Amino acid sequence: MSLSSHLQELKKKHRMLSDAVEEAQRAPSVDGLHVAELKKQKLRLKEEISRLSSETVH
C-alpha cells in the first residue's frame, strides 16, 4: 500500500469515527466511556495522519 493510499484510508477511518462520536453523543443511552474510547481512537488516527503527512513533506 502506498503512503498516499494509506493516508486516505486513515482519513476515511477518522471521518467514520467522527460520525460515530456524533451519533453516540446524541443517543441518551450511550455510555460515556464508549464515547471517550471513540474519541481516543479518533485522536490516535489524527496524530498518525499528522505524523505521516509531515513525513511526506520532508
Rank of each mutant, 00 (worst) to 15 (best):
L43C: 04
R51Q: 12
M16R: 14
L7N: 02
A24M: 06
S54T: 12
K12M: 03
T56P: 01
S2E: 08
I49Y: 03
K46T: 08
Q41E: 14
S5I: 08
K12I: 02
S4T: 10
V35N: 10
K46S: 13
R44K: 14
R51C: 05
R51L: 13
K11F: 01
A36I: 03
K11V: 04
Q41W: 01
E48I: 07
V35W: 09
H14R: 14
E55P: 00
E37K: 09
K12F: 06
A27Q: 13
R26K: 14
M16C: 05
L38A: 00
S18P: 00
S53D: 10
A36N: 10
V21A: 07
I49N: 02
V35H: 09
G32A: 15
S4E: 10
D19C: 03
R44Y: 05
V35D: 05
E47S: 13
D31Y: 07
S50E: 15
E9I: 05
E37F: 06
R44D: 13
E55G: 00
A36L: 12
H58V: 09
V35K: 13
H58S: 11
L45C: 02
D31N: 15
V57T: 10
L17I: 03
I49T: 03
R15M: 06
P28E: 11
S50I: 03
L10N: 07
Q41L: 09
A36Q: 13
D19G: 11
K42I: 00
K46G: 07
E47R: 13
E55D: 07
L33S: 05
R51S: 09
R15V: 02
Q8D: 15
L43K: 11
K40R: 15
P28F: 02
